[in-house]
Amino acid sequence: MLFYICAAFVVLVDQASKILVRLNMEVGDTLPFWRNHVHFNFYENSGAAFSSFQGFGRYFVIVALALVVGVIYYRRKGELRGVFIELGTGFLVGGAIGNAIDRTLYNKVTDFLVFGQDGGILNLADIAINIGMFFIMVHTLLGFWKNRKSSSHEKPLNLQ
């Protein structure tokens, strides 16, 4: 259930933030938010991360749908269990759906968050994807350490 709540929350917050930006700013507008650390800069990206693959944004809808189908498939098989993997896949899927909605409706993604002076520009879906990857890495590392710890406590068989 945590997965679905997290994914839905990410989609709703992401889409609400993008609607607010599109309604209140013009493309290219900049608005300082928190000193020199964060500012809003309305940009429309028709490509992928770092403005790569400009004009090919719709193809990433297919990638997002494949990701969502894959996660749901492995969840139903029972292979994605645990708080960190639930949160990780929830953030990842929510971010992928949030950007896929933009690509489907507008053929581009609304980006508006800039961190620092020379930071890249992104949106809440992008941040959610990064948070999701962080939780997935934590889940993976905890599983690795747990397996390593349990295998080191096993006593070797003495066959003499």
Score class of each variant (00 low, 15 high):
49 A>F: 07
8 A>F: 06
121 I>E: 06
21 V>T: 11
117 Q>C: 11
149 K>C: 10
160 Q>F: 10
19 I>H: 06
26 E>C: 11
107 N>M: 09
6 C>P: 01
8 A>L: 15
128 A>N: 04
149 K>F: 10
154 E>I: 13
141 L>G: 13
46 S>Q: 05
82 G>W: 03
157 L>S: 12
74 Y>N: 04
38 V>Q: 05
66 A>V: 11
35 R>G: 15
100 A>P: 00
71 V>F: 03
28 G>D: 12
27 V>N: 09
138 V>D: 05
124 L>M: 12
83 V>G: 01
77 K>P: 02
91 F>W: 05
20 L>I: 13
128 A>L: 03
154 E>C: 08
68 V>Q: 00
33 F>V: 00
89 T>M: 15
30 T>H: 14
8 A>T: 11
98 G>I: 14
21 V>R: 06
48 A>Y: 08
14 D>P: 14
46 S>M: 05
79 E>T: 01
64 A>S: 06
154 E>G: 06
104 T>D: 03
48 A>R: 10
130 N>C: 15
150 S>W: 14
1 M>L: 10
110 T>V: 12
120 G>H: 09
109 V>W: 07
108 K>Q: 11
20 L>M: 07
48 A>P: 07
133 M>E: 01
30 T>G: 14
23 L>I: 06
129 I>M: 00
38 V>F: 09
47 G>H: 09
84 F>D: 00
69 V>T: 12
30 T>Y: 11
146 K>R: 15
151 S>R: 14
19 I>N: 06
109 V>R: 04
75 R>P: 00
70 G>H: 02
105 L>E: 12
144 F>N: 05
85 I>S: 02
75 R>S: 00
156 P>Q: 11
56 F>W: 11
134 F>H: 08
158 N>W: 01
14 D>K: 12
18 K>R: 03
87 L>M: 04
114 V>P: 10
1 M>A: 04
5 I>M: 12
47 G>W: 04
53 F>H: 08
147 N>M: 03
34 W>E: 06
138 V>N: 14
28 G>Q: 07
154 E>M: 10
46 S>H: 04
28 G>I: 11
4 Y>V: 13
21 V>Q: 02
48 A>H: 07
48 A>I: 12
16 A>Y: 12
113 L>E: 07
30 T>Q: 14
25 M>D: 13
31 L>C: 13
6 C>D: 00
134 F>Y: 05
137 M>K: 02
109 V>S: 01
21 V>N: 07
58 R>P: 08
7 A>N: 00
72 I>V: 15
44 E>N: 13
60 F>L: 07
3 F>C: 01
142 L>H: 05
114 V>R: 15
56 F>D: 07
95 G>T: 04
75 R>M: 00
124 L>I: 11
53 F>P: 09
9 F>C: 08
9 F>W: 00
154 E>K: 08
